[in-house]
Design a protein around this nucleic acid. Structure first.
Lengths: 111, 111
DNA sequence: GTGGGTGGTTACCCCGAGGTGAGCGAGTAG
DNA sequence: CTACTCGCTCACCTCGGGGTAACCACCCAC
């Protein structure tokens, strides 16, 4: 860990990471994609409340950030599969402690 | 932890945690408070760009969420000190991996 | 011909987080 | 008397992320 003691180092890393997961539905998407690759309509059904427009937008952002991979199959009906990249899997792993903290301290019960 | 395999468990924990750090300046505040207790005006100077209104609002939110402690000294001129609670320190620690991920993968240089 | 399912895009609107500037109340410095 | 500090609070406004709905091109089943 070495912790270079540079003021703001991890703070800035957090800011950078936050900018990547900034978006109402991104962590949900990350979560759904962690399990297996998913199709567009599948994600739409899995993440209730998200609109097509925003789903497409946030997937594209995650794609340009290198978090998800977009695979287009030239079939009919058209098929597109989204999956996590290695970077995305790392990100999800890095979110683990945060999720654990939230689960431990914020969720009403651990039943 | 046993990892009950309950679908969405850590995902929901993340959502809960995100709701706590949701706010443009909260991670900056967390970072500044991690080092030592800070006064209101001090935070305002340390976090450039934040307005007094929003600074006060986000500090109060962090306070009601049990992340920071607000100590009022009945002096003149008035003095108020903000500090991290144990919960807040845990939260900061849980943000560590995320910061490390961001630093490693997103920041231009590791100098 | 009509409907359905695929994966989008576009135009338009809304709402709330956040910014701006003013004021306040007590006391001290000049 | 005025000016300044400190820690706010209030009224007002802006801006953009996200919601809604319509539309598209393609093909299949009825």
């Amino acid at each position: 860990m070495a912790m270079t003691r540079r003021p703001g180092a991890d703070h800035c890393g957090i800011a950078a990471a936050m900018s990547v997961i900034d978006g109402k539905w991104k962590v949900s998407l990350l979560w759904e994609l962690e399990q297996r690759p998913r199709r567009f309509g599948e994600l739409r059904r899995l993440v209730p409340g998200v609109s097509e427009k925003v789903l497409a937008a946030q997937l594209r952002e995650l794609e340009t950030d290198g978090i998800v991979h977009r695979e287009v199959y030239d079939e009919v009906p058209p098929r597109v599969e989204y999956s996590l990249t290695a970077l995305g899997q790392d990100l999800n792993a890095a979110l683990g402690p945060l999720g654990a903290w939230g689960t431990k301290h914020l969720l009403p019960d651990s039943a």
